[in-house]
Write a protein that binds this DNA or RNA. Structure first.
Lengths: 238, 238
DNA sequence: CCAAAAGTGTTGCCTGTACACCCATGT
DNA sequence: ACATGGGTGTACAGGCAACACTTTTGG
């Protein structure tokens, strides 16, 4: 075998290897319930990760782009469409997947848990408090992915009011503040918090109140999506 | 043309029978010269993009992770190691590559143009003012990638003093300000700019001055990398 | 001595933060 | 009536932005 041929063959083999990779998406689906930030997980079906929790993901199909794949996973698993979703990071460590080379693109999304609950029954999905799950092992490098997405979420909600996506259509200011306190793991001043959001001018006063609470009922607000998009640039700066 | 020097893009076409999906990295290499933000590009060798400019990228090999691939591209093309680099976004549109499905992970890096100049001679790389290149067509979706990375860079330098990576080891405050003004495309107040950076405490007074200028010479400063890492969290907030 | 850019402080404003009392409801 | 959380305003401090004159060098 002469040098030239050898080089060519070697190279072709290597080139073929280049295509033995797969692309997947992993979705970090955040919800907010019971004043806790939660994440939607499934038990891993790989024997290597028996009993460990896994994010929702799938291989990207030849006929769909990355975003489509992420939305598809979300739709298949939760039945939800038109959800807030954002690409966060690509994870490509060599041995991150036991079956071979799989590069995964992580997305995080924010959903209203109430919209999902019914569908959970036919499914093996479960909401987990993020604080708890971070103490445990997860499948693959999903702990890394979760941490990275959580970090991004924290950064995001102090820059833009994306937190609304986690709340029901009607909510109280206390709900909103609990959300921020849970995600950022801080205590915030009630008066200053209100001032900030009223100044942002993204709340719609629905002229309704809570009911069945044993204290003064709080007013209910909605989220003004139109004003939100105008105000994207403003920082919240906690 | 022998096999060794052939470009990967050519291989893609040749072996399209085996084709499934490939992962590549694309590097947006920023430099700062002549008071302009520049980006390092190469002329595309694909006939589809004849005469158009392309980012520096390559297929990710089976034995390297994403970051390694990006550093390899940088090393091969510029001879530089230990460069500031950051992953920005994964691009996976269906038809972004004419030879087939290639998902590309974009990285941006900041280099000191002086460290590269000599090596450019043996190469078909060229620095382009970012402002100019954004007016022109680019190969693939590289304009998107460039825009996304530029946006990230802008965000980054107002949060952390990463701009130092674009400057020589010794620089004046005017250099630093020019850098910020060029990247952010704004005019900044000289006194406030100085105050801000002195307060940040990341500048080392080298007790040296410019020479051969026909006006009062400016003092030269260095960058205190140690203090920088402590102060990462502080915002600059322009 | 002229041109050109370097260097230097103060003030007002705006934003963030700390903080305490009265109000409406259910029990 | 009481317990519980809802709703509200003010004062202080720190950070940001606006602004003009003197200094040093080369020509």
């Amino acid at each position: 075998m002469n040098m030239q041929t050898k080089n060519v063959n070697t190279h072709l083999t290597e080139i073929k290897d280049y295509f033995k990779v797969a692309i997947s998406v992993d979705c970090v689906i955040f919800g907010f319930d019971n004043d806790e930030l939660k994440v939607l997980l499934i038990e891993s079906d790989l024997k290597e990760y028996r009993g460990k929790w896994s994010l929702l993901g799938d291989i990207v199909r030849p006929d769909e782009d990355l975003e489509n794949a992420a939305y598809r996973v979300l739709l298949e698993r939760t039945g939800l469409e038109n959800v807030y979703m954002q690409q966060v990071h690509a994870f490509g460590a060599l041995n991150r997947h036991p079956a071979g080379r799989v590069v995964s693109v992580a997305y995080y999304s924010l959903v209203n848990v109430e919209h999902i609950e019914l569908k959970l029954l036919n499914n093996d999905l479960h909401w987990h408090p993020v604080k708890d799950i971070l103490q445990k092992d997860m499948a693959f490098d999903h702990k890394d992915i979760l941490n990275t997405c959580l970090e991004r979420l924290r950064q995001q909600i102090i820059e833009q009011p994306v937190g609304f996506n986690l709340l029901p259509r009607k909510f109280t200011l206390r709900d909103l503040q609990n959300l921020y306190e849970a995600i950022l793991d801080v205590k915030l001043d009630r008066r200053n918090f209100r001032k900030k959001f009223f100044a942002m001018d993204v709340l719609i006063d629905l002229n309704e109140e809570e009911e069945e609470v044993r204290h003064r009922p709080a007013k209910l607000y909605g989220f003004n999506a139109e004003r939100y998009s105008q105000q994207k640039k403003k920082s919240l700066g906690f």
